[in-house]
Design a protein around this nucleic acid. Structure first.
Lengths: 132, 132
DNA sequence: GGTGATTATTTAACTAGGTAAATAAAATTA
DNA sequence: TAATTTTATTTACCTAGTTAAATAATCACC
């Protein structure tokens, strides 16, 4: 296997694992956090809007949202179109958000500590160029 | 979330999904292929050697090897140390390997088609630097 | 040589991704 | 308007990663 691919897969798994370590202090998992972050940023969204934005399949989001709902982070509300479920953050989510975001910021700083600003930009550009 | 992280997670998922598409023609999944490739390259290995090399946890490898064994790609054989299971490729695996490897090479070429050799090296270096 | 610690593997249970198919509501069209 | 097609969500089931705990063999040491 091309060592570039091996490296990318390994680095990805490492980063997700470390993020999960950080989020464990807040009793969250990375994919749950991804959805909370998106909702805080964009406001209430339908399930479809969420999975299209995150580039994952619908059932993945359905499952994670169901879990978040049981844990009290979000509510499902019916839209004008009765097929749609609009996902809202709860008051608890809004209240706890800043502290979690701060933890994640620390994590991000730690993960990028060996790269200069230019190198981070380069890495972004290369990843984007690869996809295009 | 830092856009670099978002990009990296997305690119990773995209690459794994495309690899699974390619391997589906051979009735394999990416993590199964990872182990077959390793065994072809290094020869028979214990389960512990495999998971340490791949940087994943032992139960992950146990499960995938069990599946590969049922499908006829590998055999578990007992080592001198009776705790150890040594994983061997079967004849079928050796026979089919080259064709699958060719498919994967095509996939790798396609995934890197927009990057020059230097850019691929740069990307490798940046990912490695990030971890270190 | 027997006891306790370590090591290799497995089992169980969790999150997280995927596809295929079911269901219900809305939109389209004949 | 009735029938068909499309869309939004969910359910069921697969691979793939994780941690925690169980089991069996080996090692270390007294």
């Amino acid at each position: 296997m091309n060592p570039l691919f091996h490296q990318l897969f390994q680095q990805n798994r490492y980063m997700v694992n470390r993020l999960n370590d950080v989020l464990a202090q807040h009793e969250l998992y990375s994919s749950q956090w991804t959805i909370l972050f998106l909702l805080e940023q964009k406001g209430p969204m339908t399930l479809t809007a969420i999975w299209k934005y995150l580039n994952v399949e619908a059932p993945t989001v359905t499952r994670t949202v169901t879990r978040l709902e049981k844990l009290g982070w979000v509510t499902r509300e019916q839209g004008a179109d009765k097929r749609e479920k609009i996902i809202h953050l709860t008051e608890m989510a809004h209240v706890r958000f800043p502290q979690i975001a701060a933890s994640v910021k620390d994590y991000e700083r730690e993960m990028t500590q060996h790269l200069t600003q230019e190198e981070q930009q380069q890495l972004m550009d290369l990843l984007q160029k690869m996809k295009a």
